[in-house]
Design a protein around this nucleic acid. Structure first.
Length: 923
RNA sequence: GGGGCGGUGGCGGAACAGGCAGACGCAGGGGACUUAAAAUCCUCCGGUGGCAACACCUUGUGGGUUCGAUUCCCACCCGCCCCACCA
């Protein structure tokens, strides 16, 4: 019977898992004597099978949590299930299983799979969001939010998925064709009464990341999502005198407005449209709405629009400008109306061009001015000198000069270009919209000459200009647009009445002050973030605890009546209505206030609501006096380390921050943020480098891997095969290397070896390697660099095999190496570490041992390889004592035969010495 | 269009307060042990030239700074991801 001799994960893994569970080894309880560490990994949705991606997210999180525990922290590492949601209901419709049954069967199965991972989850704290004891408190939070005016009801257009039969949050609508995140069906828009949370009230605070250590990409993504724009609200008036509010980030360009654009659904459209234009406008509005109703084709995004026949008066200069409608203006941002400044905005420009609307005047010109690029081959002698003479800054590149021309030197430069640029080529001037230089012909475009006139002249000069569909297309191409208008757009104001001459840096501020003084506008901040729509017309979710009473109106269900239980007996009919609405009795109830016959809200809550506070439910999943036990909260919160997928950046990770801040303001939670440190893992792709999916047949099944290799090997491989934060394609042969490592560890620890009489140096070397590895592994654990932990351990193992070969067995250094090795392995591969620990005769459990301490002195090298370079090229390497002094090192280098050969008699000009590293001889 | 991430051998990846590029592993070649296989062990393994010592080239491209650049700076190319008529 060799079961004992050979590495057999199938016997040791279940054995230890059972033992740990029996002993409650991973129970985390309040212990004020130790520092706490709340390690949280995103809870899974119980889809039925634990995916390799779950392992990839959770295993390193577990290893990190275990590491923190060994470092003396009281570590809480809980798990649960985000159990409400659409797939359960879809399964019900497709297979006739009750969502509850489907969900709980999946949970039972995934629990077993999760346990096979050998993670240190404290299962006593498991929380399942679809349990009444959980969603009771989700509903409680809803009522609290309602009481604090953070939840409100609003009728409005919502995105609706016709397949899932439910409203979607904006974040759940994807792609240019606006399809449903889950099923891919293009969404339609519906007018419904819906519940919202006032997340926008927290927009500014959500933009403040100063209290948290989160990845740059998540911060960037959230910042972009919330998108704060500062600008002005300006009141234009229609000719009839009706106010028409416009939001702009560029009030300094007000004088350049040549037309106005309303969103097709804007309420003023009807009022400004003239009789002649009525038919046209109505047709366009109908088309636009139909488009969003049926399906927005991805196709080309050429702007379309129609003239309403109405005019507005620009309050800054009384200019009378036409009002158009166009679908490039959306009702949901700003005011749904814009002033169009074609000279300074690409979109307005495109639109003006297409419909022949005026483009000028330009009302700011760049202060920094012009960049020019001139090819070497195009110039005569003297050009470069000329640049120097005029003190025009330039940079000489491989094939061209890049020249930056200060505004006041433009004339000098134009003259220079005229005289020294060879004919047949042209000098491109980028960055100034009104200057073009052709060989020997320089033209300027100012507000007098029209684009058509310039185009005609240019065509005459240079026939190929004709091939551009329009001059404008060329003008606005690439650098022209990028440099000139948009980025350098803040320039000295021109053509702007009494504000002409205002410098670019102050333009916006001054114009706003001026507008406020005149009473025609005011400073205003806009956000892209919208309030969070939480109503779902579905069954499998937490019912919104609201009752509609004919007498009292909207009445929240009293806290003592919670939870509003989901009925079990529902039918799924493809009606598009919530099954709760169709239930014969459920919705009928009495008003909690007056006792009158009343009806319940039949919508349920977005599951992101449930997952916004699960980290709190973990603290006390059975607690019935509140959403969580205050004692637990005080000890454990906030979450110290949160791990999970970056795809939640704009949804869950914003919602949960909002939830926390709202809770804080309601006096329920405390502190600025719920999760202090966030780390994201990458995505594992299939072996074909494609996203894993059943239809592609490239899915890696963790159960199968565990069956073949054991959980420890799978764990180690997941940490080793790629950078954790990056992920990458799976490689099924790669796991062999990790399996080999585990077996070699096993063999080293279990084989009989003869103690020898090793040299002192060998043992010092062994200790050095052990402590160097420990130092690195400690560092890497702290920084979530798991792949190098495994490779460092592999390296150390190789060293230990060599040392054993040379008789290191039986010595104190050897025993120390074995001891430290297992402690370092324990977080990564908990089962084999425990097994070998026991076999060494050490006390149970290795997972209760402290993390070893680095012996700094032992890590110091005695001998180093001194690299000897001549002119920066490596010519020799010499072994020298680590403490060699500069003099000796340099001498050693100069004496090297290889150096002598390479010097070839030349005298060194200088000798550079980098202590402990190298000597570089410069000749 | 905006934002983010990345580009190093056949592959995954190491090394970046500037100092031996390619750790560790996979795949591959050669060998040992086996009747054989598995397992294990030894050995080679970026490219070109050379019997060899050795030389030259090589971290997406082109420049720059430096005694010295995968690492810092400038310009560009390519790939992936997220957001997007957001005024």
């Amino acid at each position: 019977m060799d079961v004992d001799r050979n590495y057999n994960p199938k016997s040791i893994e279940p054995k230890w898992q059972t033992r740990w569970e029996q002993d409650g080894l991973y129970h985390a309880d309040i212990d004020p004597s130790r520092p706490k560490h709340y390690a949280l990994t995103m809870l899974p949705y119980p889809s039925g099978d634990l995916h390799i991606g779950h392992w990839y997210a959770m295993v390193p999180s577990d290893a990190r949590a275990r590491f923190m525990r060994m470092r003396g922290y009281n570590v809480l590492f809980p798990i649960g299930f985000d159990a409400f949601g659409l797939p359960a209901e879809n399964a019900a419709i497709q297979r006739g299983i009750h969502p509850k049954e489907w969900t709980y069967a999946n949970i039972a199965r995934m629990r077993v799979q999760l346990k096979s991972m050998g993670a240190m989850f404290d299962w006593r704290r498991e929380a399942i969001s679809s349990d009444p004891k959980y969603y009771k408190w989700t509903q409680w939070f809803f009522v609290k939010l309602y009481e604090h005016d953070l939840a409100y009801q609003k009728e409005g257009m919502v995105d609706w998925c016709p397949t899932c039969n439910t409203t979607l949050a904006r974040e759940q609508v994807w792609g240019e064709d606006r399809h449903c995140e889950r099923c891919g069906t293009p969404v339609i828009r519906k007018n419904l009464k819906q519940w919202f949370f006032r997340i926008t009230r927290y927009a500014d605070e959500l933009l403040d990341f100063s209290h948290i250590d989160w990845p740059e990409r998540v911060i960037a993504s959230q910042t972009n999502w919330i998108k704060r724009s500062e600008g002005a609200m300006v009141i234009f008036r229609t000719e009839a005198g009706e106010a028409m509010e416009v939001f702009t980030t560029r009030p300094d360009t007000l004088w350049g407005a040549t037309f106005m654009v309303l969103a097709p659904e804007h309420p003023l459209v009807e009022k400004v449209t003239t009789a002649e234009q009525k038919a046209l406008v109505e047709d366009y509005v109908y088309q636009a709405l139909r488009q969003s109703d049926i399906q927005r084709e991805a196709v080309d995004k050429e702007k379309t629009g129609v003239f309403t026949g109405g005019y507005a008066i620009n309050p800054v200069n009384q200019a009378r400008i036409p009002i158009w409608i166009a679908d490039y203006v959306v009702m949901t941002y700003g005011t749904g109306a814009i002033m169009a400044v074609p000279a300074h905005d690409k979109r307005d420009f495109d639109f003006a061009l297409k419909y022949g609307l005026p483009i000028l005047p330009v009302i700011a010109h760049p202060d920094q001015l012009v960049k020019s690029r001139v090819l070497f081959e195009s110039v005569e002698a003297g050009f470069e000198d000329g640049l120097r003479d005029h003190q025009i800054p330039f940079e000489k590149q491989t094939t061209a000069w890049n020249i930056t021309i200060p505004y006041h030197k433009i004339d000098a430069y134009l003259h220079l270009a005229q005289t020294s640029v060879r004919s047949g080529h042209w000098v491109e001037i980028v960055g100034a919209q009104w200057v073009f230089v052709f060989p020997h012909h320089i033209m300027t475009w100012d507000s007098v000459e029209s684009g058509e006139q310039i185009f005609a002249r240019m065509c005459a000069l240079k026939p190929e200009v004709r091939q551009w569909r329009t001059l404008m297309e060329m003008l606005w191409s690439e650098e022209f647009y990028r440099d000139a208008l948009y980025h350098h757009a803040y320039g000295t104001m021109i053509n702007s009445g009494e504000l002409t001459g205002t410098p670019g840096e102050e333009a916006v501020k001054r114009v706003i002050a001026w507008l406020e003084e005149k009473g025609i506008g005011e400073s205003k901040v806009s956000y892209r973030l919208r309030d969070w729509l939480i109503s779902r017309q579905r069954y499998w979710g937490a019912p919104i605890p609201i009752v509609y009473c004919p007498n009292c109106g909207v009445v929240p269900v009293p806290l003592e009546d919670l939870p509003v239980l989901l009925p079990d007996d529902v039918e799924w009919l493809p009606t598009g209505e919530s099954p709760l609405k169709l239930h014969p009795t459920w919705k009928y109830t009495q008003c909690p206030h007056c006792g009158a016959e009343a009806e319940r809200e039949t919508d349920t809550m977005d599951t992101f609501m449930c997952s916004s506070w699960y980290h709190l439910r973990y603290l006390s999943p059975d607690y019935d006096q509140g959403p969580f036990d205050q004692k637990e909260y005080d000890y454990w919160m906030p979450v110290d380390t949160y791990t999970g997928g970056v795809e939640h950046a704009n949804m869950h990770l914003i919602y949960t921050r909002f939830f926390h801040k709202a809770g804080r303001d309601m006096g329920i939670m405390r502190g600025p943020e719920p999760m202090l440190q966030l780390r994201n893992q990458g995505i594992i792709l299939g072996e074909d480098s494609e996203k894993m999916s059943k239809s592609r047949g490239n899915v890696v099944a963790p159960d199968e891997l565990v069956d073949n290799y054991g959980a420890d090997t799978v764990r180690a491989y997941l940490m080793f095969f790629a950078r954790w934060d990056q992920g990458g394609p799976w490689n099924s042969s790669g796991i062999e290397g990790t399996a080999r490592w585990i077996r070699r560890v096993w063999n080293l620890f279990t084989e009989e070896a003869q103690p020898g009489r090793p040299a002192e140096a060998l043992l010092r070397q062994l200790r050095r390697k052990v402590h160097q590895t420990l130092k690195q592994v400690t560092h890497d654990f702290e920084h979530f660099e798991f792949n190098t932990i495994v490779s460092a351990l592999m390296e150390l193992l190789n060293t230990m095999y060599d040392a054993r070969e040379q008789g290191a067995c039986g010595t104190p250094a050897w025993h120390e190496a074995l001891d430290i090795y297992l402690r370092m392995m324990a977080p990564l591969t908990p089962h084999i570490a425990e097994e070998l620990w026991q076999r060494l005769g050490k006390p149970y459990s290795i997972h209760q041992q402290p993390w070893p301490i680095v012996d700094e002195a032992a890590t110091q090298e005695e001998l180093i390889t001194l690299v000897v370079q001549v002119n920066g090229r490596v010519r020799d390497r010499v072994m020298v004592p680590a403490n060699i002094d500069e003099q000796a090192a340099k001498q050693m280098a100069l004496d090297s035969p290889a150096v002598q050969r390479n010097l070839a008699g030349k005298t060194p000009r200088s000798v550079i010495y980098v202590p402990g590293k190298l000597v570089n001889i410069v000749v």
